[in-house]
Structure formats: structure tokens, C-alpha cells
Amino acid sequence: MPELAIHTQKLTRRFGNLTAVDGMDLQVTAGQFFGFLGPNGAGKSTTIKILTGLLAPTSGSIQLLGVDFAANPVEVKRQIGVVPEGMGLFERLTGSEYLKFVGRMYGLDRATTQSRSEELLEFMQLADRPKTMIADYSHGMQKKLALAAAVIHGPRILFLDEPFEGVDALAAGALKALLARMTERGTTIFLTSHVLEIVERLCSHVAIIHKGRLVAQGSLEELRAGISGEAGSKTTLEQIFLSIVGQDGTGRPQLEELSWLM
């Protein structure tokens, strides 16, 4: 049986009367490039926050790489890297200072931190502005730096919340290549994105969350097999997504009803 990188059982999170994540049983095998999809407000970011220790679950359990998160949070965090929602950067540091800070926080020695910081800055094309503070970076540069910080300690699981949002095409290409190489080396990548084409191109496995519940999970082929597309054409992830979640996921009026716009 393959090793499970992420395994949740009956994971639930409530905010007052709202159940943002409802009894989620999620299984992600080690080494998978896993896409986590859902409409706005479905519970994607809440799930990723729970899985990375930024939010406590109301009930249920999480095991990452076979280790119980609640019992051994520090040990689990050593194994994971995160690009959280909003990126979690200290804006008054320079890129280099931030990477060194994060490297040391993950327990890397000074020399390793130094050399990895330089390599990552070079790779992300951020090395030519050593004195610039993160507050003065563009959104795309901040995203690249957040990703660099998430991988500096060589995590075995990488959680990415909308990693390509605001990143230019050139940088996105380099990042995708980096992520693909990481999965080849056995890193598990758990990614949320609204751009279904990116997920379709990168991910081998997908889960779809809707109104806090996991409504589909499996490889792209498995999901395609469950959907009847046009004869002879390959079903796209967008078609799969829409058929599972519904036309817009909410039951709101269709565009035709807004006649005054036409």
C-alpha cells in the first residue's frame, strides 16, 4: 500500500453556525501533484489552513506522512512548506533577509541557509534587488519569494494556496518546472487554484470541495470516467468541475435573465 502523505478523517471546522469544512475524509498519496478545487467560499482555504496548522479543526483528525498533527505539530511542520493565503511575508525585510530568517526558523544551519537563499533568489530572479524591502516588491515578486521560502528547507509536502495568481508567464513557467521536478523527487504538492487549466496540466490527482464537503476525489482519468462527455472528445477539467458543482455552484439566476445587460 502506498504511503499516504495527507490523511484526514471526519475533518470538520465550524464558524458559529457555518460549517466551512464538513466531515472531510481526504487521502493524498506521497509524491502526488494534487489539485484542490472548489467554487468561491467552498472551504478550500479553510482546509489548507487546517492542514498547515494555521487553524484548529473543530473535530476530526489529520495525519501528515503518518504523523498525527495534533500530537506532534512541531515534527509535522518540519516536513511541510506553505505558501499561505496572503503569503505571510515580513514586509520590512529584504528578500535575502527573509529567506535567511525562514531557513533558520526551520532549523537549517547558517551556511546551508546562506547558500540556499542565494540559489533560490537567483532561480526566482530576485537576486538583483538585494536592498529592496519586500514591501516594495511587486505582487508577482512577493509570490515568488513566498514560494522560495516555502521550499528552502526541502519539505516533503508543499501546500500552495493560489501560487500562480499575479505571477507573469515567464516566472510561472519556471515555477511549474520547479514544482514538477519536486514531485519527481517524491515531494507531495497540494495546490489550490481557480485556473482549472493549470490544475489540469500540472496535477495528477484532484479533489473537489463544495459547501464544505468533499464531492469528488481521484485521478483525472477516474473523474473523467464518471462524466459523460461528447463522443470522441476528451472531457476537460472545467467540464468535470461544472458537472459536479453545477453551472455556477450557487443556483443564482443565469445570465439570460439579466436582460438589461444585453
Binding site: 494555521l54 512541531v74 499561505p84 496572503g86 505571510g88 515580513f90 514586509e91 526558523m105 532549523g107
Partner: peptide
């Protein structure tokens, strides 16, 4: 007060 979004790092990093 001045940590901003960086506060998340303290909770995702392996430290007490």
C-alpha cells in the same frame, strides 16, 4: 503589531 501577514510564519514554522 507590526508583524502583519508574517505572523502566519510563526504558526507554520516548526517551533514552539
Amino acid at each position: 503589531a507590526y508583524e502583519g501577514r508574517g505572523i502566519q510564519t510563526y504558526f507554520t514554522a516548526p517551533l514552539r
